[in-house]
Amino acid sequence: MDDQESKPALQVSRREFVEVAVVSGLAAGVPAAAQTPEIKPRIVNCTFTINKQKQELQIDPRVTLLDLLREHLKLTGTKKGCDHGQCGACTVLVDGRRINSCLTLAIMQNGREITTIEGLAAGSQLHPMQTAFIEHDGFQCGYCTPGQVCSAVALLDEVKAGAPSAVTPRMGEIRPIELSDDEIRERMSGNICRCGAYEGIVAAVREAAGRRRV
């Protein structure tokens, strides 16, 4: 990979930072749990492109991308299942890559392009992955589903780009990925489905990949 051009840093001035640092320096050494916060969380300006719409927002730096989407922007399609990166229900695409939106601060994604489940369909035309999930009953309660679908969409791009997974044979050789069911299962393992719709999920991904059962 080439060195990416460093993107402009956030517009938080150096002076502000130092001021705050001095204030809270006084509190150092106080046992964590007993400590009263001495600095108010400041509001930071951010710009995101969310589902192709540019949004300028003022946010508390503590707000995760997940809570920004769900609580501030009312994009509740992205789900909170564990809030600790352990279930995948919060999966969204950032600059086309799947991530757990619960384990990143919104502010850290400043300037990025974010696609949530609400942004996959083109108007009333569902994304082929969404259609495949319905046809193959790749869900039951539906709560993990937005994360599963976003994850699956990214999966196909990753496979296309030749990215190996833990079950790819001879990963020391650079060659196209053969998307077996085992590959799909491994690559979808960051999304837990407690209802146990895994069989339908694999079938949906297989179909959206345009492939027969291997």
Partner: peptide
């Protein structure tokens, strides 16, 4: 196909919270 399939795969099914 599930009647609620479309709202679930588009993130429009509204859960309690």
């Amino acid at each position: 196909d599930r009647i609620d399939g479309r709202v679930k795969v588009t993130g429009r099914a509204v859960y309690a919270y």
